[in-house]
């Protein structure tokens, strides 16, 4: 509790690594946004399917041993 309000806090010297200036990018067109959303959806569905597949493969490989655990 220093009594200094947040907006009165002195500026700290923060190390800012020099970054190469990012090239200017044209904003995405609605069509590009739509394609990106479709790609993201495809990746999400693929990852979800992989999770299900890994689960199914694990159960298949364990077989009846899946029940063999201390209760």
């Amino acid at each position: 509790m220093s009594g200094v309000l947040p907006d009165e806090r002195p500026e700290k010297a923060v190390h800012q690594p020099s970054r190469p200036e990012a090239p200017e990018r044209a904003p995405l067109t609605p069509e590009e946004v739509k394609r990106r959303r479709a790609r993201n959806l495809a990746i999400a569905l693929t990852l979800g399917a992989l999770c299900v597949l890994f689960y199914a493969v694990t159960i298949a490989r364990l077989g009846v041993n899946v029940l063999n655990r201390p209760l």
Partner: peptide
């Protein structure tokens, strides 16, 4: 023209 791929699925 953009950093985002323009390819469709």
């Amino acid at each position: 023209r953009s950093a985002v791929s323009s390819g469709e699925v």
